[in-house]
Design a protein around this nucleic acid. Sequence first.
DNA 1: GCTATCGTACTTGATAAGAC
DNA 2: GTCTTATCAAGTACGATAGC
Length: 244
Amino acid sequence: MRQLPPLSALRAFEAAARHLSFKRAAEELGVTPTAISHQIRQLEELLGVRLFERRTRQVLITPEGQLLYPVLRDGFDAFAKALDALTARPSRHVLTLSATTAFTARWLVPRIAAFREANPGTDLRLHASDAPVDFRSGVADAAIRYGRGPYPGLVTEELFSDRFAPVCSPRLGMRRKEDLRSRALLHFEWRRVDRDTPTWRLWFERAGLRGPRRHGRDDLHRREPRAPGGARGTGHRAAEPATR
DNA sequence: GCTATCGTACTTGATAAGAC
DNA sequence: GTCTTATCAAGTACGATAGC
């Protein structure tokens, strides 16, 4: 077990030796010169050696004090560095990325490990939601959504494009593309339709066929996923870096 | 045995006065 | 102006005691 003098006394001595003044040491430590005098006197009695030579309006460090001073100076420097390292927290960038639940589960999550390895200084937070993203609320820094844009006030970048093709079960016995006209079709409910919107009508047009017959309730309808910021669109997914 | 309370001793630091 | 010494006040540590 270590037998050490009071830390306050050692601290007072180190400050007084550095300044060669009880007064300035007291100012540094936030105590009175008397307290410094007490502390050093106590330390001298404890050690049995004189650390300072008191002169009129002046103190000089003794040879014994000169032996002790550099040891304490280096020790307190080491304390300060250790405490700085202990309390310092590296600044980390946090990126909150919003994406649809399906895209998050199937595409983003399997790639998290690679992202963290490539960006060790960035903490990635995923916000899985099919709802529109309001960037003003701070819920996300960027979002991946299905849509065509443009989205006013946001910066978009196309990540992927879709290819649309008819798919059906072999049990339906369809052999020709014309056979699709007589079948119930799955329709998206696009909120904004223009000449490039991937509708069945466009597909039949590109295939050189007359439009599909409407089957009413027999057709299956699926709502278009929403784009970021409440914008609607078709054609590509878009990623919006933060505009904040 | 554990916890709370009280009294005593010690530590720390401030004030005042004086020396140099 | 700076440091020392005497004195005092406040805080802290620790042991004794009482109550549960």
